[in-house]
C-alpha cells in the first residue's frame, strides 16, 4: 500500500512537471513580450533589452525553466539591480502587471473558488442523487417521467442563461437576495450563504441534472444484479436490500465522477465566477487571459493540474475503500 502510494505520488509529480514544461513552452512561443509589459509604455528598444537582461528573460529557455521549477520549491529573486523583486516560496512566478507574486494572487482568490465548488457540489449531490434514486426506484411511474423530463430541460439551459434569469428574478425583481459578492465564511457565515446561494444554484443545476440521470441508470442497473436478488432471497426487508445492497455499488461511479468534477472546479468555475463577478480563481484566469498576464495564466494552469491530478488519486483511493475488488493485495 505504501509502495503503491509512493508510486502514485511520483507519477503525479512527473505529470505536473510535464504540464509545467508544456505551458512554459507554449508561453515562450507566444508573441507577447514580458519585458515590454514590465517596462511599460514609451520604453525605448534599448531599455526593453536592458529589462530583458535583468529579468533573466534572455537566458536560454531551459535555464529559465530550471529557475521557474527551482523557484516553486525554493523561491527566487527575479531580475537584478533596481528591478529585483523577491518572490518567496512557493514562487509560481511574479505578475509584473499587478506587482504581486502569482502564488499570493491565487491564494487570495482560492477561498472564493473553494466555497463556490463545495457549496455547489453539496447542492447538486443532494438534488441529483436524490432525484436519480427516486426515479430509479419509481421507474416507469409519473414521478420518474416528470423528473427525467425536468432534467433534460435543466441540462439544456446554458449557465449564463440560468445566471441571468436568477439574478433578474431574485435580485432585481423580488429583491430577496443581495447581488452576490464574496464574504468569507469566518467573517459572516450567513452572509457567506446568502451571497453564494445564486452562484451555487447556477453551478449546481446543470450538474444536478447530469447526476440525476447517471444515478438513475446506475441504480436501475445495480438493482438488477444477482447479488440484489440474493439479498432478497435472504429475507431482508426491501429498505435494507435497496439501502445497503443496491445503493452502495450504484453510487460508486457517482462518487468517482464527483471527485473528478470537484477537482476541476476547485481551480475555479470560469463562467460562473465571471457572471457573478466573484473574485475566484476562474475570474483571475479570465482577467489574466484578457491582459496576457502570462505568469498568472501559467500559475493557474499548474494549480488546476495539481487539483485534477490530486483528485484522481483521491478518487482511486476512495474507490478501493468502497469496492474491495479494487484493493491491492
Amino acid at each position: 500500500m505504501i509502495g503503491y502510494l509512493l508510486r502514485r505520488l511520483a507519477a503525479m509529480a512527473a505529470t505536473l512537471l510535464i504540464v509545467c514544461a508544456l505551458t512554459f513552452a507554449v508561453f515562450y512561443l507566444l508573441p507577447s513580450d514580458p519585458a515590454a509589459q514590465f517596462c511599460g509604455k514609451d520604453c525605448s528598444t534599448e531599455r526593453i533589452e536592458l529589462v530583458r537582461q535583468q529579468l533573466g528573460l534572455a537566458d536560454p529557455l531551459i535555464v529559465q525553466f530550471w529557475h521557474y521549477v527551482r523557484g516553486i520549491f525554493a523561491g527566487q529573486t527575479l531580475g537584478t539591480g533596481q528591478y529585483a523583486v523577491q518572490c518567496g516560496f512557493p514562487c509560481f512566478g511574479y505578475s509584473f502587471q499587478s506587482a504581486q507574486p502569482v502564488w499570493a494572487l491565487m491564494m487570495d482568490r482560492l477561498p472564493t473558488s473553494i466555497s463556490l465548488a463545495l457549496g455547489a457540489a453539496t447542492l447538486w449531490l443532494l438534488l441529483g442523487v436524490g432525484a436519480g434514486v427516486i426515479s430509479a426506484l419509481r421507474r416507469g411511474t409519473w414521478i420518474d417521467r416528470t423528473l427525467m423530463i425536468g432534467t433534460i430541460g435543466i441540462a439544456a439551459l446554458p449557465v449564463y442563461f440560468t445566471a441571468m434569469i436568477l439574478l433578474y428574478l431574485v435580485v432585481t425583481v423580488a429583491g430577496i437576495l443581495p447581488y452576490p459578492r464574496y464574504i468569507a465564511f469566518g467573517e459572516n457565515p450567513v452572509g457567506w450563504i446568502t451571497n453564494l446561494i445564486l452562484p451555487w444554484i447556477t453551478l449546481a443545476l446543470l450538474n444536478a441534472a447530469i447526476y440525476a440521470r447517471m444515478t438513475r441508470n446506475s441504480v436501475i442497473e445495480t438493482m438488477a444484479e444477482p447479488y440484489v436478488r440474493t439479498a432478497r432471497a435472504k429475507g431482508l426487508p426491501e429498505r435494507r436490500v435497496v439501502g445497503k445492497h443496491g445503493l452502495r455499488p450504484a453510487l460508486t461511479p457517482v462518487a468517482t465522477m464527483l471527485g473528478m468534477d470537484l477537482g476541476g472546479l476547485l481551480a475555479g468555475a470560469l463562467i460562473t465566477e465571471s457572471l457573478f463577478s466573484l473574485p475566484g480563481i476562474g475570474k483571475l484566469f479570465a482577467d489574466s487571459l484578457n491582459k496576457s498576464d502570462q505568469p498568472v495564466i501559467m500559475g493557474v494552469t499548474l494549480l488546476a493540474s495539481f487539483f485534477i491530478v490530486t483528485s484522481n488519486l483521491v478518487v482511486d483511493l476512495v474507490y478501493a475503500w468502497i469496492d474491495p475488488r479494487a484493493r491491492l493485495s
Binding site: E225, P226, Y227, R229, T230, A233, P249, I322, D323, P324
Partner: peptide
C-alpha cells in the same frame, strides 16, 4: 426456504 444461485461470483455481494 433458501436458494443457491448459479454463479456465486455475481450472486454474492462484491463489497
Amino acid at each position: 426456504m433458501a436458494m443457491v444461485f448459479q454463479d456465486a461470483l455475481t450472486a454474492l455481494h462484491p463489497y
